[in-house]
Design a binder for these strands. Structure first.
Lengths: 153, 153
DNA sequence: CTGATATCATTTGCATACGAATGAATTTGA
DNA sequence: TCAAATTCATTCGTATGCAAATGATATCAG
């Protein structure tokens, strides 16, 4: 086999694998699509709340009253984003805010009775959403996937 | 052991595993965080383009001129979103649009020479971003992860 | 004690993301 | 053929998501 033959194979035969860039194989692109699919499944089961809003309620239900800033850290939202989420939950009467007695910079956030009722009602639906999101995988695959995904997050 | 004891174990001892809802273990929440991390890595390497903008350029580079609608399908964006992305790329001179000769509903989109130059320059950086995103995993884990992620997307 | 830093919240601006409504153009089907 | 259905693009409204700037408060260091 001549050197020209090797070169030809390099630039033509292997081109599809080695040199071409396939968007649909990139982890970022697939991650974005998987996230989109999950949001869509979420909306199909919980129409009146977004995943970030649900996350805020679920975390407040878990840990109780906390500052807006701390809540943002716990649910992976920056300060500007969490403010919008809390504003909308407050407008719907699901959370209430108050000033921190000692540290006047802090805004405390807590569930209202309506918010507590809502999150207790929605958690079973959230479990279903998790199941449906992972439905294309076997139980073993799902466990592996969650373990690896957590390493990336 | 009394029935009361079993009830107690059910509601207290096993509560942490069976009945509590842990947001940080839910696939949707971790998926959102992994996606956030990827976007952050992307921005660190490609500051002047967003992942959706890059996706549009990469796909046009791959397949050549196509309709705005078809492009949206290929890069998983609805019509409203893709319009905004194309508008911004057009404003920066990276793509150009024209009317379809036969089907007057369609808006054809194509790379400009500047757009082609940009995507050729950026693809190596995108490969680096993919590597960094997957860096917490071994090569074998990364292959497994991509296979399972693709099933969910 | 006080000036420099750091933290918390807010605001603004820009960029996805999607549902719903609308209008123009095309295709289908009776 | 022609009315109904479909497709393509646009627009509007709402909701993240983040960078950067700002103001108020708290903490730290000399």
């Amino acid at each position: 086999m001549s050197g020209e033959d090797n070169l030809l194979r390099l630039v033509e035969a292997e081109d599809g694998d080695e040199n071409n860039y396939h968007l649909q194989d990139q982890v970022g692109f697939i991650l974005r699509k998987a996230h989109q699919r999950h949001v869509s499944l979420f909306a199909a089961h919980i129409a009146d709340l977004t995943p970030p809003q649900f996350a805020a309620l679920a975390k407040l239900y878990d840990i109780g009253e906390t500052s807006q800033n701390q809540l943002g850290t716990l649910i992976a939202m920056d300060a500007a984003t969490v403010k919008g989420v809390i504003d909308r939950l407050k407008a719907r009467g699901l959370v209430e805010v108050s000033k921190h007695e000692v540290d006047k910079r802090r805004l405390l956030v807590n569930l209202t009775p309506e918010g507590r009722e809502a999150i207790e009602r929605l958690i079973p639906l959230a479990r279903t959403i998790t199941e449906e999101t992972l439905a294309p995988l076997t139980a073993k695959e799902a466990a592996t996937f969650l373990r690896l995904l957590a390493k990336l997050a």
